[in-house]
Design a protein around this nucleic acid. Structure first.
Lengths: 226, 226
DNA sequence: AGATCCTATCTTGCATACAAGATGGTTGAC
DNA sequence: GTCAACCATCTTGTATGCAAGATAGGATCT
């Protein structure tokens, strides 16, 4: 997956590393990132490091205060809910558009990811489920036929990655998620745009038991980070 | 509006200037931006200029090809349609959420922008209409109560600015737009979430006569840029 | 003549040097 | 004893210098 990384620039490498570190909770909320220390740690100069800072600030993981430095920013729980609310709407819209352009080949691909997910559930393999799930959603973004929408959805999806991943660790979440995938596919197969959109919205939205799941996941990252 | 700009960094100033230049069509599609020439022109070093490049690349106005340089990228007409399609959905969602939290104060503010728009139409003042329109939409983003959604809507709104602005120059567009604002306000006043969302979607979406309006606007930027 | 390879030159990517603003501690005054 | 102001120090923002990759032009070979 990351095989072609040999020639990427240092600022990109640093950006990826830093993003991973932040997301994995290597820093605490509000911590200031020291340019000199980090550049020494990554063995690069301050220039590419600062470029990485700016990219991360653009995606919301850092806040750059002029003349004061870069501070890591974990979204508040409330903000995470807000992001999921938007994600649900974007994905529902993808479904609505996709349902007009469904092809047998597309449905076959989608069905394949569902099978993969089912096997992951059977073997209780979170990693496998995670990847098949990525593919499921990615296929629907593509099938929307609106590549700008697809790109935006991918961006937000990526940003929500840590929370989604942690949610999967909650007992029973995988099986529920799988069933929801099935209902989306079924609606798409029937060509029912509204039903597909609604199923997808329900799949993403934080509601019912998922409230607690998310809160638990969130606390877990917060503890790690603190 | 831009009164506090005195203390902003050079890279921010350069970013703003460059963004304006690109949007106003100072460069042609695919043109490579020369770091040295531009840094001399803006009287800054290459460092802040490169930072500006990266910020502009992040918002899609430039494409950075490693070791080759920065190239200006105008979205294809198709991509502009896609962006409007997403914008329509985001704003419709804002309306749906906002309709649950409507307050008399909010409705009064909204009504005020409509009055302002009406006066702008009466005096055929595109600039005035443009600003009142900004305020109308901004109020609804805020009223959604989802600040992440509001920020995303603002971002996309900003990116579509040149096209929206040019559309207003098309004869009769202002009056139509005003009427649509009125219908949105009316639906919000009634508390009809679905109607409000639909009116807003129709207001933003590129359909009917707006097809031609947008194409004309687009050609105008393309000519200027070419 | 056409194509390919080599080289000179240009441009980017990165490192470092320097200047200006922010921070914190100490000293002095009230 | 407390508050404020000043100075030393640290950190960021910017400029410049240097090395490696890209490009273009010419020379050589087929």
């Amino acid at each position: 997956m990351h095989a072609e990384n040999a020639l990427t620039s240092r600022s990109d490498l640093v950006r990826e590393k830093l993003e991973e570190m932040i997301v994995e909770g290597a820093f605490s909320q509000g911590e200031r990132l020291d340019e000199v220390k980090l550049s020494q740690r990554f063995d690069v100069s301050r220039t590419p490091l600062r470029e990485a800072f700016q990219a991360l600030a653009a995606s919301g993981l850092l806040v750059l205060e002029p003349r004061r430095g870069a501070f890591v920013r974990f979204p508040a729980l409330e903000e995470v809910f807000e992001m999921f609310e938007v994600m649900a709407e974007l994905e529902a819209f993808c479904c609505r558009l996709a349902s007009r352009r469904v092809t047998p080949a597309f449905l076959a691909d989608l069905e394949e990811t569902v099978v993969e997910c089912r096997q992951a559930v059977a073997s209780d393999d979170v990693n496998r489920y995670y990847h098949a799930n990525e593919r499921f959603h990615g296929l629907i973004y593509e099938a929307s036929g609106n590549s700008f929408l697809g790109a935006e959805a991918t961006r937000l999806h990526r940003r929500l990655k840590p929370y989604r991943r942690l949610q999967l660790n909650n007992r029973g979440r995988m099986a529920h998620s799988l069933a929801e995938h099935g209902r989306v596919v079924e609606a798409l197969t029937r060509g029912d745009a509204e039903a597909a959109a609604n199923e997808m919205r329900a799949h993403i939205a934080i509601q019912g038991g998922k409230f607690n799941d998310l809160i638990v996941s969130y606390r877990r990252t917060a503890r790690k980070a603190g």
